[in-house]
Amino acid sequence: MSEITTTPAQLSVRHLTRHFTTRVPGRLLHAKRVVRAVDDASLDLVRGQVTAVVGESGSGKSVLARMLARIIAPTSGELILEGTTIPAGAKRTLEYASKVQLVLQDPYASTNPVHRIRHSLERPLLIHGAKKHDVEDLAKAALSRVSLDPPERFLDRYPHELSGGQLQRVSIARALCVKPDVLLADEPISMLDVSVRLGILNLLKGLCDNEHLAVLYITHDIASARYLADEIIVMYAGQIVERSRGTALVDEPTHPYTQLLIASVPDPSDPTSQASQSDEHSSYAVPEVGCRFAPRCPFVMDVCRTTDPPVFQVGEGHTSRCWLYADRPEAVVEMALPERRREGETTKT
């Protein structure tokens, strides 16, 4: 494990925050409300590792991925690519795009239906400065990397002629053909058939192991995160609530939200797993002060409603943003510190 921590992160983010301002429906024009889509997220994407971000819809996980791809500009916080801090407000450059690539959820929506696969693969190559006579070979090489063999068979097909799994491989190939160091995959398997999902997961794992890509895997399926990831991060309402290395988070969840999430997963091997919750949770608004999970939390205490919990160390490489762990004051990690770095040397408050 120690050699992992010493590996420098390819892409890091520190205290990344994105707020959206929306109008309150039915009120005067001036009535505005701030949606805290992502609050104070810090993480490191390391070469040869898969970092999984798990959360339900609206937890901010996709906004986080788009900030990492610099499609959405953060409200505050910084991105550090290969040790170089990217100045706030700087435009997304071609150079950045060639290092960090994003794969989207729906391959049918992210490929142009009127163009052949060749076009989808060659266009980014040309934009990124490949020689015109090289692009076909490069495109073929990219298809081979995602196990679409023989590549000639796929180059001249249209997206509708491929199955969902094949097309998702094409969109991964398209991301790979500019030789990125970081691959951001936003729910890459949720639109696919069950029987082809594992193929895509194994492909991501292979790219990570064999080609030392840093992979961010965004999902709502915690079982697939457990299968794939070296680090698992759970987000709730824009905040990172729990994170762990390896499978500790799934095997011994500490945050009540993670516990609820895991108990909700249908698990045929354990028919006794039955999470139940109060009705109409979805109507709970995220509170302005205190812990965001407090209205749904079965263990809620007074302090939860008044003060946002800091991040507590609950195990080796395992942190939780929950007041339940406050009885161990030595475990307090400063809020939103890059925990990965501070492993072992916990900060006293």
């Binding site: 339900e56 709502h220 139940s276 919750q277 009705d279």
Partner: peptide, 8 residues
């Protein structure tokens, strides 16, 4: 639906 809502 989300997994938690699905469970409910």
């Amino acid at each position: 639906l989300d997994v938690v809502t699905q469970r409910e």
